[in-house]
Design a binder for these strands. Structure first.
Lengths: 211, 211
DNA sequence: GCCTACATGTAAATAGTTACATGATTGA
DNA sequence: TCAATCATGTAACTATTTACATGTAGGC
């Protein structure tokens, strides 16, 4: 999870640890505050593995900061991690989904669509469960107004989330449809896209590597 | 975090591991699927510590299942964990807050209020940060429509969340005010409350034990 | 000159997951 | 009788946090 974050952020531009941590805290801070104690070891690990490399700009004489940049190998690793589902079921929980969503721009439409639908499915199941609770609560002993209110609120939020996902899913489907009709891609991306929209490999098969 | 969940659920009634796991998965499943590999060791740990004890109903001859019940010691531990903030700052992140909120019924109004306000503060900071992003995105290079859309959506959700918290905070404040005026409590809790609303000790001091 | 933020790191501890193993009970 | 679900557990592993240690750079 951390590694996916590091690689994804480094895709944008080379950075040093301290900077990276701030960016990650910002992007994912809603549910995850990365600590230096995990970040720096992770950077070393990724460097040893060849996924990132140290990069000294001509201006920086001092080696005070270690600026890292993504390698081709790291790019491949990143793409593998993005579409990896772990082994079997593994619910598309909020955390994993959000981390991936932050890097949607780097995925193929099919991968995005698949992630969105998995997420939607997960949320729908949760809503059904939570609504079940409401009924049980009325029948049975539950008189806990806090818990009931909390569930009601969560249901609302989740339904709003699902509606949002539906919008994104529709859009993604249209893109895929349009791309199919006109072989040379043209509708997928608008606006001056400075980074390439996607990737090297076909990569739509679900690689079973670990996240 | 797991321990707080176990103790809180056992407060309601004695349960065995398998049951407990289902209950916890339901209550917290939105962001956390407890696994047996952590649950059973945790139960042993808590038993050794004297926070819970095995309990054999007269009907159950078979020792097939281990039904646990909360002890007085466990009750104290639970209250300690509920109001514990860890050491220093420690943001009131979604996970920790939700776990505690599930057990709001067992807290004193002051503790609830304090948690609600911490949570609100955290969310407000996040909203401010995220709004900052929108501005930066417009100025700078950001052309990532996915990320921008994601942030917009998160801002909406978070603001809705804050509004909800405000409602709860108001209510809590009213309760506290009312309780102060009329020494014998009467306005705090309505409806046939079968379990005692709160607790043994004064406990409003923030105990610095670990979660 | 001092405080704050910048910057990197390590060791120990904590928390939790995955995979495996085992067996009982229940319903079709 | 067979499959699903109930029920408990352990060992190895993975990920991450906390606390500590150290030093630099820039602004007032």
């Amino acid at each position: 999870m951390l590694e996916i974050g590091i690689l994804g952020v480094l895709k944008e531009r080379p950075m040093h640890g301290y900077e990276l941590k701030k960016k990650l805290s910002f992007l994912l801070g809603h549910f995850w505050q990365v600590s230096y104690g995990s970040l720096y070891p992770a950077l070393k690990r990724l460097e040893k593995r060849g996924a990132i490399e140290r990069f000294y700009s001509s201006k920086e004489k001092t080696k005070r900061r270690n600026v890292y940049r993504l390698t081709d190998d790291g790019e491949r690793l990143f793409q593998g991690l993005l579409s990896a589902t772990g082994t079997v079921s593994e619910a598309e929980d909020s955390e994993k989904f959000s981390v991936r969503m932050v890097f949607f721009q780097y995925m193929e439409p099919e991968t995005r669509l698949w992630l969105l639908e998995r997420r939607k499915h997960f949320l729908q199941e949760r809503v059904a469960e939570m609504k079940g609770y409401g009924k049980t609560a009325r029948d049975k002993d539950e008189t806990d107004t806090y818990r009931i209110g909390m569930f009601r609120h969560r249901i609302e939020l989740t339904e709003y989330d699902i509606a949002w996902l539906n919008g994104l899913i529709d859009q993604e489907r249209k893109n895929i449809g349009a791309a199919k009709k006109s072989p040379p891609e043209n509708s997928v991306r608008k606006e001056g896209t400075k980074r390439k929209v996607t990737l090297s490999e076909p990569s739509n098969e679900v690689s079973p590597s670990k996240v």
